[in-house]
Nucleic acid binder design. Structure first.
Lengths: 233, 233
DNA sequence: AGTTGACAGATAATGTACGATCTGGAAAGT
DNA sequence: ACTTTCCAGATCGTACATTATCTGTCAACT
């Protein structure tokens, strides 16, 4: 699809009004990797990319270096860059790390959450349930928003950034797959439980539910990936 | 003895003390940031850096982009890069994340550790205690080695990489400060406890000790930073 | 004949040089 | 004192040079 809906989420990206096809070479390459247009282990030749994105080689080289720093691209000396395979192992690695970090972020939030915060969570959750899962993109946005309410004000910016980056990756992968019926019910139930634990100011309980939530979501994704991979053989 | 200083630390880094071996512009800049030779918020002008490291501008630009991806430098459009301040908040953010990740890494290790692994841990720990804390650099190496034994074989490479990066940062900061007497005793005690929990195959126990270990170490560093900052006023 | 190894050309990464464009601030003008 | 103009300095993009790696051919050897 050419309908690249600018993600309504990304924190500081201001995206210059309309067209502005530029949007940064970096952003474009990253999207192409996450959406699978640049496939696993594919070689990233600077001249070809320069052609593709309508620029010269230096911006490409710099974007690739940035992506290298973020771990999306692998370099070999004198042999250039290739796309880091985003396979099941990688997805598992990420959600297991998230299963450690998000409970930590959440339990702090419990201590500072106001009634207003809880109301906002409920509003988002209401919308999620009202929407059903028919519009996956919209659901993904709302789900991100739900967790963002919890993590955004955290004093640990490093952890929050980490969360955001990981989320971006998982979201891009998950976009390829539908939610099972079971998973849908779990998501709703777990979100409600999270809200409830926050309301009760039960930090440990909230952390535990979040951990379950992440693990369940992660397993769901990995199972889909495995299934899709096997189907291809 | 095995006094072969086989650089047990950095995976591929050469670091020939004063040989000024190239070692990559990236490594040099990173070291200069971590060691404080490039100070917080200092502007990183490509021309100046090119001069400094004896190369031309492109390698500098690419190294800076990589560092940007890793979060060590910040960019502003059309105004280039500056050093990300590595202050107390940043250090705290990092060690709190580590306090989540390292217990997770450790508890898995407990399940696969062999007698040989335990012996290696004990050997390193023996050396740490034999050395005392007189040679801070050597101690830092050994301490890193100790934890590396535990994390290096982990299946979650992403988490292990994260650990390594965080460790590098904290190590560079900690280098500036001495260990208090209390802290020395704690370190030794905690290491011994970790070994013991591993031997007993008590994953939860090991994880908990590690968490304490990280938190203690982190607080120690932050207190030093605070003290040093206040002293400067 | 088939395999191996070395050489040459092609291809692409890495480094250097330069011009276009943007920013910030000093100097000139009101 | 407050704009406005202008310029020095730096970033960002383009073009080119150098160096390393890959590929295919051909000769030498088993």
């Amino acid at each position: 699809m050419t309908e690249v809906v600018e993600d309504p989420i990304s924190p500081e990206q201001d995206l210059g009004s309309d067209g502005a096809v530029d949007a940064g070479i970096y952003q474009q390459i990253l999207q192409d990797i996450l959406e699978g247009r640049l496939t696993a282990n594919e070689r990233l030749k600077v001249r070809a990319l320069a052609e593709r994105y309508g620029t010269s080689t230096n911006p490409i080289r710099e974007a690739l270096q940035q992506l290298r720093g973020e771990g999306f691209v692998l370099f070999t000396a004198n042999r250039g860059a290739r796309v880091r395979p985003i396979d099941e192992d990688f997805a598992r690695d990420i959600y297991e790390v998230e299963a450690q970090i998000e409970p930590y972020l959440t339990s702090w939030f419990v201590g500072i959450a106001t009634n207003d915060d809880i109301r906002r969570l409920e509003l988002v959750q209401d919308e999620i349930e009202a929407l059903g899962f028919d519009d996956p993109l919209r659901h993904s946005e709302l789900d991100t928003q739900f967790h963002q309410i919890i993590y955004d004000g955290h004093y640990n910016r490093h952890a929050a950034d980490l969360w955001w980056r990981h989320r971006e990756i998982l979201r891009a992968i998950a976009r390829r797959f539908p939610y099972s019926m079971v998973r849908r019910k779990e998501i709703i139930s777990e979100h409600r439980q999270i809200i409830e634990k926050i309301r009760l100011q039960d930090a440990a309980g909230a952390a535990e539910v979040v951990r379950m939530h992440i693990m369940g979501s992660g397993r769901h994704i990995v199972e889909h990936m495995r299934s899709a991979r096997i189907r291809k053989l």
